[in-house]
């Protein structure tokens, strides 16, 4: 239990650092900005208390906001994502429910399940984030383009990170 907490704390710090030191400086074509930190919310274990998920999302959003001086943008988007996570998990639940002790990862749940899960939540997060940032619908399509392209890059990064932990021989 303590080990898990320390583990997630380490992941938290690592993701925040990667986001603010490296990824915030990446803008391919002035357009695309991947937000890898959402992986933290994605990777929390299934049996985590739902209120705790909200709190942790709030915390990581706030940390990112403080470092990029965009008060509230990432916090609100991350909390929204944590909120949707509960319903998305319910929606794509495999028959028989989730096994105890597994985490929502490529390793445990397989490619197609993880793909659906990650795509839905990342796109929801990015939609929320980019539209609160623009705060109007007058540039609807250009914002939508940014959402799609940034989501793709975030997803690619998430898959790369997941593949580090992927071992096909021990798959359940």
């Amino acid at each position: 239990m303590i080990r898990d907490v320390l583990n997630y704390l380490f992941v938290f710090i690592l993701l925040v650092l990667t986001q603010v030191v490296i990824l915030n400086n990446i803008e391919l074509g002035g357009y695309i900005n991947p937000y890898l930190y959402v992986l933290f919310i994605l990777a929390l274990p299934f049996e985590t208390n739902e209120n705790l998920v909200l709190f942790l999302a709030f915390l990581i959003g706030l940390t990112i906001d403080i470092f990029s001086s965009t008060m509230g943008f990432h916090t609100s988007a991350a909390v929204f994502m944590a909120f949707s996570r509960k319903y998305v998990l319910k929606l794509i639940q495999p028959r028989g429910g989730y096994e105890f002790g597994t985490t929502p990862s490529l390793q445990h749940m397989g490619l197609s399940w993880f793909m659906t899960y990650a795509v839905i939540l990342v796109v929801l997060h990015h939609l929320f984030l980019f539209y609160t940032e623009t705060f109007n619908f007058s540039q609807f399509f250009s914002t939508f383009g940014r959402v799609i392209v940034s989501s793709i890059f975030t997803l690619i990064l998430i898959f790369i990170v997941q593949l580090f932990n992927y071992n096909p021989n021990t798959r359940k």
Partner: peptide, 26 residues
């Protein structure tokens, strides 16, 4: 969820008048 979201939006709006957010900026 509503509580945290309202708090986040409050920060977002308060931040638009820069002086209020002195503590939380870079």
């Amino acid at each position: 969820f509503l509580l945290l979201e309202i708090f986040a939006f409050w920060m977002l709006i308060a931040n638009n008048s820069y002086q209020n957010s002195k503590f939380f900026n870079s």
